[in-house]
Amino acid sequence: MDFGSFEEWFTLENIMKLIKQYRSFGPIPGILLPMIEAFLPILPLVIFVMANANAFGLWLGFLYSWLGACLGALIVFLVVRKFGQRRIFSFLSKHSKVQKLMKWIERHGFGPLFLMICFPFTPSALVNIVAGLSKISIVQYGLAVLIGKMVMIFTISFVGYDLHSLLTKPLRSVIVTIIIFILWYFGKRIEVKLNKSLESVHNGEIDRSRG
């Protein structure tokens, strides 16, 4: 199976079939899929969350997705925090953009980190790794993940729950479209602001070196 076929396989229908196939394992498949996404960011978290909401219901689907996504993010953070100085991660911590992002997270703490995690269109895998490499406290990071993922996962679960009504109820489709646009818009705003903050840090370092 080539990469293109691999990506094409991850549709809502196929993931729902997979969850139903292993339904005898209870909530384990619903928790594992979002958890694995934290280690393999090429996997579609949005599809996993929507499939959980349809397979288990809105509230249980949200709970399983939230638990899995939080567990995955925290495990990645703790692994990077413990082994971040080892050779496997040394090339990352020495990268100039990664160093700037680490300093930005350390300087601003919980608030911006929470906002970045809230939106599904920000690179959460990169955020997890950089947060692990930074000096931000585990408590700050844990709270940002638990609350930020709660907002993000519930929004996706609500959007993905009862997809049939999206076709039969035009007003719901309009609301869902607006929600997706808002998430995309604010995700892009955060990305732009993050890039500007990194640029200002870089310019400040240059000015200090010249002074």
Rank of each mutant, 00 (worst) to 15 (best):
L183S: 07
K196R: 11
L33H: 05
I28S: 04
I179E: 00
I182V: 15
I47V: 15
E13S: 04
T168Q: 11
K94G: 11
I138V: 14
H108F: 13
S5G: 11
P112W: 11
Y161L: 08
I206F: 08
L115P: 01
V80Y: 01
H202N: 13
R172G: 03
S90I: 08
L33P: 07
I136P: 00
S65A: 11
L33D: 02
L133F: 00
N14T: 06
M1E: 11
F154A: 02
G148Y: 04
I156N: 02
A73G: 14
I28D: 01
L78K: 12
K82A: 09
I117L: 10
I105C: 03
K103V: 03
G211T: 09
R189G: 09
L198Y: 00
N128D: 00
L78H: 10
K188S: 05
A131K: 00
M150I: 09
K103H: 02
K82M: 08
L71S: 06
Y22R: 08
V174R: 12
Q99N: 09
A38L: 11
V139G: 05
G26K: 06
Q140S: 15
F89S: 08
W184N: 08
S165F: 12
F181A: 15
A69T: 10
G68A: 06
F158I: 10
M16Y: 01
M50C: 14
Y141D: 01
P44V: 13
V201H: 03
T177H: 01
F62M: 03
A53T: 07
L167M: 14
A144L: 09
L32G: 00
L43G: 04
V139A: 14
S93R: 15
P120A: 05
L60K: 14
F48P: 10
A131R: 05
F89D: 04
I179T: 14
M102H: 07
L163I: 15
L171R: 08
D2L: 07
F91Y: 14
T155Q: 09
M102G: 01
V80F: 05
L101I: 09
S173D: 07
K20S: 08
E191C: 02
I19L: 15
V139D: 06
G160H: 08
P112K: 00
M35W: 11
G187F: 02
F56L: 13
P112G: 03
I88D: 01
I182A: 12
S137C: 02
L167P: 03
